[in-house]
Write a protein that binds this DNA or RNA. Sequence first.
RNA 1: CGCGGGGUAGAGCAACCAGGCAGCUCGUCGGGCCCAUAACCCGAAGGUUCUCGGUUCAAAUCCGAGCCCCGCAA
Length: 299
Amino acid sequence: MISVVYFGTHHFSAHILESLIDSKLFDIKLVVTQPDRPAGRKKEIQKSPVKIIAQKYNLKIEQPETLKNYILPTAADLNITCQYGLIIPKVILDTAKHASINVHTSLLPKYRGASPIQSALINGEKETGITVMLMDEKMDHGDILKQQKITIDSDDTFVELNNKLLAIAPDLLIKTASDYVEGKITSQTQLHDEATFCKEFTRDDGKIDWDKTSEQIYNLYRGLTPWPGIWTEYNGQRLKLLEVKPAHEKVKQGKLISQQDKLFAGCAQNTSIEIIKIQLEGKNPMQAKEFINGFKNIL
RNA sequence: CGCGGGGUAGAGCAACCAGGCAGCUCGUCGGGCCCAUAACCCGAAGGUUCUCGGUUCAAAUCCGAGCCCCGCAA
């Protein structure tokens, strides 16, 4: 068995961790994840998805607030990280007997950073993939061990694409990690000149710019749904567009109109999007038809 | 005590501010029209107006308390 210290926080990472456990090839000596934080309207303390998995398998857990001056209590053959959310100092990377390995959800050097899946969708990419790499002290900068490409369908949203990547990532990681420990893989330096970066998104990033075309807005929807979602202002209130698709109706830019039971919004260059599911500030989500029934007089 | 919107027929909303027969668009059911229809016409059923208390001749509406849903923020 290969001993491992695992660093991770979010959902994708939790699945990766569980796959490592299931493979029975790895001995997870320690899981490092971000501290429990308040979330939701009532500010209830929530565990990270990775912590939940770690507890399910009774693994040892560490939740340092920061890794500055943090001393890893356990050394292992490999440090494996995925969506941990904090930069890991070189001192900690160097504790691994063989290497510190990272799983990243893009084809590096493209989309280094916090939101590779969302950003690829927003930019209308046709393909993306998984990169398994060696870590260095710069974010997503280390040498590449293995990559696997997948195609992005034009209707994939974050959920579908995330699932596609999740379907291939565990096997790629497990095989690459094992092969690396056995010395069967050589690493390859990234083409740093071609690197692009992506930031973490906030709700403001979901505000729709109606000067964009329906394709651009649809891509924004694909990348930011379900979180943080896309929205616009309507009568001074926030209107979330929970489900949309490109359409060909001619609608004045930035305007909402109803046609039979359907709802359309006008985008740039005479394009439009159909709104299928919608939520007004303070209200529950509703289908376009329900919205039309209730708000017909002001459409 | 973080800020704000909301709870009215199966759905989405109006009426509330300024108390006086609870209404609109759908859906459902029945009938009509039609070659036909999810279209159109006629009709019907369906309500403890979230709960409890208060004010009043009279409360969906005003006052007090509570429960629940949601948008921000974190």
